[in-house]
Amino acid sequence: MADKSRTTVTKKPLADFKVGVDNVIFSVDTEQNRLLVLLVMRQHEPYRDRWCLPGTLVRQGESLEESAYRILSEKIRAKNLYLEQLFTFGDIGRDPREAPDSYAVRYLSVSYFALVPFSQAELIADGVSGIAWYPVNQVPELAFDHNRILEYGHRRLCNKLEYSPVAFDVLPEAFTLSDLYQLYTTVLGENFSDYSNFRTRLLKLGFLSDTGIKTSRGAGRPASLYRFDAEAFAPLKNKPMVFI
C-alpha cells in the first residue's frame, strides 16, 4: 500500500508590529457652510512635504486613547470636543517602511475621529512645517492610506449625526434650532431634511429644553435658546434615524 504524501505547512514567523494612531479631526464652519478636516504636512520621509492626518506612533506605557488625546493636545486647543475610536487599518504594504521582501515589520494605524467647535479651535503650529483646515471635498492626495481613513471617518460622522447626540458635544450649552440645523446641513447636505420638518421632529422627541431665553441675530425675530437633556434622550440612544 502506497504511503500517502504529507503536505508540509511552513509556519511564517510572527510579524513585528509598530502601532500608530491617526486622528481624523473634523470641524464645522457654519458661517461658510463647510465641513473641515485638520491636516498636517509631513517633515520626514516617507512622503516628505505631503499632507496627512495628524498621527504618531504609540509610546511605551501609553494607551491608544492617551496617544489619540496627545495628538489632539499637540495640534489643537479646544474646550469642547468629541473623540471616538474609528477603525484599525493594517493592510500589507500600507506603509513604505515595510520591507516588501518579508513584511517582518508591519505598521498598523488605529484611527480615531474627533469633532471640535470651529469658532473655539486654535491650531498649534509648533513642530510642524504646515497645519491647516481643509474642506473635506477639497482634500488633496494624502500620505499613506489617509484618504481612505478620512473617507471612513466621514461616513462614521454622518452616521453618528443620524442617531446620536454627538452634535451637542460641540455646540454651546444654549443654542438655537437654527444653529443645530446649520450644523446638520453642513455635514449631511441641505437635502437631508427641510428646516420645518427638522424642527417639528426634534421638538416632538422631547429631549430639547427651552431655556425661556431668546436671542436676536440680525433683523429676524428673536429665536429661542434650547439645551440638550441627556436624561430625556436616554430611551432613544442608538435608535437609527432619530434626527431625520
Rank of each mutant, 00 (worst) to 15 (best):
A125G: 04
L86F: 07
A132G: 08
Y103A: 07
L123M: 09
R70Q: 10
G61D: 03
S111Y: 00
R97A: 04
K75P: 04
Q120I: 06
F89D: 00
S63C: 06
P117H: 15
D126N: 13
P117C: 09
N137C: 08
A104P: 10
V105C: 08
A132K: 14
Y134M: 01
W133A: 01
A121V: 01
E98D: 08
Y134E: 01
A125N: 12
A132D: 13
L72V: 06
R77H: 15
D91T: 12
I92V: 14
E84N: 11
K75V: 03
S109D: 15
S119L: 15
A78F: 14
P100N: 05
R106H: 06
P100Q: 08
L72Y: 13
L72I: 09
V136Q: 11
A114N: 12
A68N: 05
A121M: 01
F113P: 01
G130N: 01
N137V: 09
R77L: 10
I71Q: 03
V128G: 06
I92Y: 15
V105G: 06
A78Q: 11
N137P: 05
A78D: 08
A104G: 11
T88H: 03
R94E: 10
S67F: 00
T88R: 11
F87Q: 10
L83K: 14
E98V: 06
Y103C: 07
Q120W: 13
I71T: 07
I76K: 09
P100Y: 07
E74M: 07
G93S: 01
A78V: 13
G93R: 02
P96D: 02
K79M: 11
N80L: 12
E74D: 12
S67C: 04
P135T: 05
D95S: 07
T88Y: 01
V116P: 09
G130I: 00
Y103R: 15
I76N: 05
L72M: 12
R77C: 12
R97N: 14
